[in-house]
């Protein structure tokens, strides 16, 4: 049942131009950054070869893609999650799902799974681009994988928050703007404090993601993203359940 919902969601996503536009936009911007940094690497190559412990191909050409990738996800995920629940409510199709023999959990998890699949697709395209340099050089695959994991975890946290916000309203655009505001808030929250020990750094997504970009997959960071994801999925389920009671 979960897969039936996910399948339906992906179908709806790709039958509108939005998903294609987002994919093209993300891919285009990342490709531009990739070519720019690859070019920079080629120019500085001779100099780097003489420097001991210099940054390698992966650090210079590939990691910047993920730096931009996180911002692109921050901007594009609200556009994809905005309609997931709010549009069902708006078009009265929620009754179709609720009167079918499936639980709220299956509905939410199915929709989340569709988003995760979409993210996986974006990451696959980025990974392909990164792997293309293996044609003429070697890459630090550990660093690449850490970055991929980091971006995926970041993406699913965004997706879960976005789905929850979509539950709160019947207007997709309101959901998109609200999600964007929340993501930006979580993103730059650490800027509010100069103290590195402050709790603001603990909840800041930016700080959490830095570790992955340096090739460090910390248990605490992974757990943080997973907890955020689960927390908002549970909130979404509770929210839909309570609507049946309150309406």
């Amino acid at each position: 049942m979960i897969f039936t919902i996910a399948h339906k969601e992906l179908k709806s996503m790709f039958s509108s131009p939005l998903a294609w536009v987002v994919l093209a936009f993300v891919q285009g911007v990342i490709a531009y950054v990739f070519i720019g940094s690859l070019n920079g690497f080629l120019i500085a190559q001779a100099q780097l070869a003489r420097t001991p412990n210099a940054a390698g191909l992966t650090e210079i050409a590939i990691v910047p893609m993920f730096g931009v990738g996180q911002m692109l996800l921050l901007m594009s995920i609200p556009l994809l999650t905005m309609r997931l629940i709010s549009e069902e409510k708006r078009n009265q199709t929620m009754a179709f799902l609720i009167s079918a023999p499936i639980s709220m959990t299956q509905i939410i998890v199915g929709k989340f799974l569709a988003m995760a699949t979409f993210l996986f697709l974006i990451l696959l395209l980025i990974a392909c681009m990164a792997l293309s340099v293996t044609a003429g050089g070697t890459i630090d695959s550990g660093l690449l994988i850490a970055n991929l994991i980091g971006l995926f975890l970041l993406g699913i946290s965004f997706a879960a928050i976005g789905i929850y916000i979509s539950c709160l309203t019947t207007h997709p655009v309101v959901a998109a703007i609200l999600s964007l505001a929340v993501f930006l808030g979580l993103w730059i929250i650490n800027l509010a404090s100069s103290n590195p020990e402050s709790w603001l750094n603990v909840v800041s997504l930016l700080k959490r993601f830095e570790g992955f970009m340096n090739g460090f997959v910390g248990i605490a960071d992974v757990a943080y993203f997973l907890v955020i994801t689960c927390f908002f999925l549970v909130l979404s389920i509770r929210r839909l359940d309570s609507e049946r009671l309150r309406a």
Partner: peptide, 16 residues
Amino acid sequence: AKIGYLPEIPPVYKEL
């Protein structure tokens, strides 16, 4: 599982 329900507004997905 034993109910079929047609709400007031037909719950159809226009993009399918």
